[in-house]
């Protein structure tokens, strides 16, 4: 069971890494094509501004999955030396911190989906990108949900970073 999950997890991480790299590379490419098109050929992409936003969202929420699993967030380590001297307190603190991370990412996922619902109801579209605006939000929400799952996986023995062979 855990082996299957781990396998699934490995495939998922690879897929997300590919997706986010493509999104980031797309950001560079779209901006360059837009500017060169405008400057050299008088033919900008028009929707470049909005497409860049969509790609940024994919890169951020796709990347959040891996960051959440590795619990790789910027923290302040000021009290770290003192905290490690109180092992019992530190364990409780660590559990509470994990719970807060889980809550925050869960709220993000829920309210991205709620926002998606609102835009869908209002039939909001982009200005230039021929796309209903809720569609990319559905992708962001899906990725944010995976970040919630990844936060859970971060504490499951066998799925934690460092456990098993695919902990890259």
């Amino acid at each position: 069971m855990i082996r299957l999950l781990r396998r699934l997890h490995g495939v998922l991480q690879e897929a997300l890494l590919l997706l986010t790299r493509l999104a980031l590379f797309g950001l560079v490419g779209i901006t360059a094509v837009d500017v060169v098109g405008r400057v050299a050929f008088g033919a900008p992409l028009g929707f470049a501004y909005e497409l860049v936003g969509v790609l940024l969202g994919v890169a951020v929420y796709g990347g959040l999955v891996r960051a959440a699993w590795r619990r790789d967030h910027i923290r302040i380590d000021l009290l770290q030396p003192w905290l490690s001297r109180l092992p019992a307190f530190d364990r409780a603190r660590e559990a509470a911190v994990w719970l807060l991370e889980l809550s925050f990412f869960t709220l993000l996922a829920i309210y991205i989906f709620r926002q998606m619902g609102a835009l869908m109801r209002w039939r909001e579209t982009f200005l230039f990108l021929p796309l209903e605006k809720w569609l990319p939000l559905a992708v962001f929400g899906g990725l944010a949900s995976l970040a919630v799952v990844a936060t859970l996986a971060a504490v499951v023995p066998g799925l934690r970073p460092g456990d098993g062979e695919r902990a890259s």
Binding site: L27, T31, V52, G53, L108, R114
Partner: peptide, 26 residues
């Protein structure tokens, strides 16, 4: 308060100007 979570979580990434962060980092 919850509505602001939804607005900020989506509009921040959809804002063209903030794409300078990944672009300058890359």
């Amino acid at each position: 308060a919850f509505a602001q979570v939804g607005i900020i979580a989506t509009e921040t990434v959809l804002t063209y100007e903030f794409a300078v962060i990944p672009l300058f980092i890359v």
